[in-house]
Simulated scan of single mutants.
Amino acid sequence: MYSLLVTCGAGKTEVLFKGIEKALTQGKRVCIATPRTDVALELSPRLQQVFPEMEIATLYGGSEDRTKNSPLTIATTHQLLRYYSAFDTIIIDEVDAFPYSVDPALEYAARQAQTEGGSTIYLSATPSKKMQRAVHSGKLSSVIIPARYHQHLLPVPFMEWCGDWEKRVKKNRLPGNVLYWVRKHHAANRPTFLFVPTIDLLERIVVILQKDYGELVAGVHAKDKKRKEKVADFREGKVKVLVTTTILERGVTVSDVQVGVLGAEDNLFTESALVQIAGRAGRSSQHPEGDVRFFHYGRTREMVAAIDQIRRMNYRAKTGGYLDE
């Protein structure tokens, strides 16, 4: 087993291309397994572009590719339950993410799906404490990439107090500084993510913002049947403000996006989640910077830890000579 520990937006998928190519030319079967359908759907066209001659199977609940037998497979981790000794190389993307991180059956499925003598590679930008200990003790071989491919620093989030925001939302209002932040970036024609802790609050906030911006505002969550279409509209600029739950904390890349978290003090927003959310900003070489705001009604250890983690990665990138300075 091997691990690749990278900062958000470092291009971990691109780092895999040469290794995947080598395995495929040797006649081996490769599977990239990811915890969420959204991420599988994001990866599929990227891999197809790199390997245009290769038929790629993309497997998730309801997928039409279930009967494909391809040398290169992209699947949600639950789909691994269907296989036994099928893949020479299994790459577990976002190994720290739900549900893989909390379901022993999925870890067992990954072991069963690997051929004898095959290899498993774990990818993570926010490794668990258990995984970090395994790396530090030498039980797990690792490669650490602390900088993004465009060689610029990670955007460091700002913590910004916004009062009892939940009480305001229930009165169909938003805190003044949150509204100002949205308006500023909208005026500059920058796409904006606004993460919130619950679906109920999301729906209220969408209604509030649509009073000013109409159909340029949309909301997405795990139960939203039009989630894929709304994310596509956001990428294409048809939607300018996307209010979302943590369902989009990983795997979604939008150029020049600005990121806000309303209610960052909520228990849902762990250190790992906040690092991933902050990692949505500054991912493209054309727009390597970004404005990340943790709007809160009281700072938490998780918020502080997330910012410290991002600063540590930036320090490692600086001292390691990874930056374009």
Rank of each mutant, 00 (worst) to 15 (best):
G251M: 10
N69V: 03
S85V: 11
C31M: 15
E289I: 08
T198P: 10
G219V: 07
S85D: 06
P191C: 04
A306E: 05
I145G: 04
R29A: 08
G118P: 12
Y122R: 09
Q276G: 13
N267Q: 08
A147K: 00
P191A: 03
G298H: 14
S3I: 05
A147R: 00
L72N: 02
A305S: 11
L59S: 01
F295H: 09
P288S: 08
H296E: 02
D93S: 05
L323V: 06
E55W: 01
E215C: 08
K225Q: 07
H150N: 03
V220T: 00
Y60N: 02
S255K: 06
S284C: 04
G320Q: 02
V231Y: 10
T7V: 15
A57I: 11
V239P: 12
E215K: 15
G263V: 15
E53N: 05
H186G: 09
H221A: 10
F17R: 11
T89P: 01
T246Q: 00
L154I: 00
D103Q: 06
V243G: 01
T13L: 13
G263A: 13
V178A: 02
I247D: 01
P288V: 10
R235L: 07
V207R: 10
E215D: 11
A75H: 01
Y213H: 13
E289D: 13
V257Y: 11
S63T: 06
T270L: 08
T253C: 02
Y149F: 09
E302R: 13
L194Y: 07
T300L: 11
G62E: 05
I32L: 15
R312F: 05
I205N: 07
A113M: 05
S128N: 14
K68H: 02
L248G: 01
I144Q: 03
Y83T: 00
G19V: 00
K68C: 04
E53L: 09
L43Y: 05
Y122H: 11
A147H: 01
G321D: 01
Y297A: 08
A278F: 02
F294P: 02
L201K: 06
A57E: 03
P191K: 01
E55F: 03
A232V: 14
H150C: 06
I20K: 12
M159E: 13
I208L: 14
R148P: 00
D96R: 15
I56Q: 03
P191I: 02
G298T: 01
A97R: 02
A273C: 11
P157K: 03
R299F: 12
R299D: 14
R168S: 04
D96T: 14
F195W: 04
L242F: 01
R36S: 07
G19R: 02
S3V: 09
T270Q: 07
T89A: 06
K225M: 04
I121D: 05
V156Y: 09
E302H: 08
A264F: 08
F294K: 09
A97K: 10
A33C: 04
D93C: 07
